[in-house]
Design a protein around this nucleic acid. Structure first.
Lengths: 200, 200, 200, 200
DNA sequence: TGCTAATCGAGACGGTACGTCAAGTCTTAAG
DNA sequence: CTTAAGACTTGACGTACCGTCTCGATTAGCA
């Protein structure tokens, strides 16, 4: 069995430079935003030549995608026994992630890239929406416990909650606390809005 | 009685230039996107000097906001007699508006600007979400007809439907037709997801 | 007999504007120099619209020529009885005229325009070299008095004295007083430099 | 022993660009003149980015000074055995140098800059008046040969001849050939203009 | 120990677009 | 018809970054 990693000749790439570049990218992304962030500024901040960046990434998007991807996030799937309790925890976590400068910039990035560069949007999206699986697990368990109807499409619920979360977050950042809004949405979803919807 | 309109001294601004600038801006916005669109290109396309643009707008954002704001959109409030019918019409209209290059760019613009320049986001938003009032009227009538519970917050419904609409539009552009998705969402909302949600 | 001056219909040109423009031009010419002097600055300084200037002059050169031409200079032809005395007076006057900011700028203007726009150079030149006729008269009288050889070309003497005056003025502004230099030159000219030039 | 030449880090400046810039500058100076010559045009003509010019020079004056300074001129000191012969050769050379578009522009530049930026004027002047030392040598030899009085200030003679040369060149470009004028001046100087100038 | 080769920092390269300034022309209302 | 005011097109200014390209200096593995 040969080594899967063939050591190339020549000087190996500097791991320190790798780290410095990613860190400088994240810092500047949070500080200045994606558009205002210049490669030259990143290189200067990282104490690195521009070449060293261009050797690794062919575009700013690639660089930012890798920088965001390098962020470690661990999210234990909550299990409080009730849907309400689990959602509470997920909401709290999501809020903490998003209400940082970096989180806002990432969100902006996701959506502005979504229409033009879907492949990059998906990278950002994957990192940003890591909680998705946790959310699914929570809903699944609630369904098994009988808190949610059996025939309901869980993905649709996810769309609804996540979408409304964004919607209110983006356009009414000054209004009621996010947690309250989520609670009202969940309540509405559970009860339904139809006047004659009780199957009796 | 003095004139309410004080005519300023000097040559008045050219209305033709106004129009040419706005049109060129919209064209290039649709063609190239906000970022790739240069003021010089707009000036060239409009057959106008750069100064003439800079005299009117201090930033690209202002210019684009005004250009989008100049778009006239008339949306008659539908009244088919049923909530389903009205929503169908609204959805069709919204889809038509958004599924154009200009619509996509506007959406990207709204969200990427939202976190950094809320005041501009609101301008874009206002224009983009003009159907909002129509949507409210439709829901209100449905409530009066008894199709929707009386004690439900209509704004919350709007958040949910609009948000889920975006959500699926942005991240699953290739999946099922938008109209179908909206139908499923409405159905879910009307029935509710709670297993034991019989009210009273 | 009709009036030789036909009073044109409409508002007559403002003499105040005329004066203000010329004065502002001279001021700015002395302060900033010909190149750095903008028409807009002249208009602003004169409290006049740009149009008012362009209606009168078609170029900066014309304007400056007229402004310099408007300067009144009276130079009485000196008659002290000796060539030395007359030259002394002329030198003093020339020095006073040239050693002002306006004088320096005029000189610069004359020469930099000379090669490209000879017709303007001549206008400046005429004003600047008004003393020329006085100089000629002085030399003529000296010739008649027998101070200068009869067969000498007076114009050539003028070229020599005026040229050397410039030469030293432009390239050695810091050296000996101008008057001394002129004296040395005159002395040299009178005596000649040839070792065997005395006709015996 | 350390190297006296410390090689700076980074890519060294391109000697080709240096040359192209200087050549383009001289070309455009001769064609269009100092004022009408734009940095952008120089860059375009040299096939070089504007930055490459601005990296080297902070002003047009600096650039032009360097360009003129880069002109190599070799002038052998003539030695025909007589003052008249030597002057003839010097005059011919000076005429050839000045009677080119570049020569005229340089002259205009020297004088228009002289009063405002003496330091630049001196650079131009040095290049332009390179023959000065040759002229001095020629006069010195003539003095030793006895063609010129011993007690005459040679510098003053230079002022007179050079000044009158300019004077006639600038204001009477259309008149008699330069060489004839110089001959008349030299003759006048050698003989003197004084009627009773017999020394001793 | 020396050779080979990819890497490093630094920074110059040809470009594009920026936002500013002044040029000379034009269009208004007021005189 | 001129005036002051100011908008118009044009074009150069000097700056900031782009992505590419040299440099001399490292820094490994291979000979």
């Amino acid at each position: 069995m040969n080594q899967p990693v063939k050591s190339l000749p020549g000087r190996p790439r500097s791991a320190e430079a790798d780290q410095a570049i990613l860190q400088a990218t994240l810092d500047l992304l949070a500080e200045a935003g994606y558009q205002s962030m210049s490669i030259e500024a990143i290189a200067a901040r990282a104490g690195v030549g521009k070449t060293t960046i261009y050797r690794r990434y062919t575009s700013k998007e690639e660089l930012v995608a890798d920088a965001l991807g390098s962020l470690k996030q661990e999210l234990p799937i909550p299990d409080t026994g009730t849907l309400w309790g689990d959602i509470e925890i997920l909401t709290e976590h999501a809020t903490k992630t998003i209400l940082t400068p970096l989180g806002r910039q990432t969100l902006a990035l996701i959506i502005s890239t979504a229409s033009s560069n879907p492949q990059f949007a998906k990278v950002y999206w994957k990192k940003y929406m890591q909680p998705r699986s946790a959310f699914f697990a929570v809903l699944k368990r609630a369904q098994e416990r009988g808190e949610i109807k059996e025939n309901v499409d869980i993905e649709l619920i996810y769309d609804l909650m996540s979408g409304s979360f964004w919607h209110s977050f983006i356009f009414k950042p000054e209004s009621e606390p996010v947690a309250d809004h989520v609670r009202r949405v969940l309540s509405l979803l559970l009860e339904g809005i139809g006047a004659c919807s009780n199957p009796k």
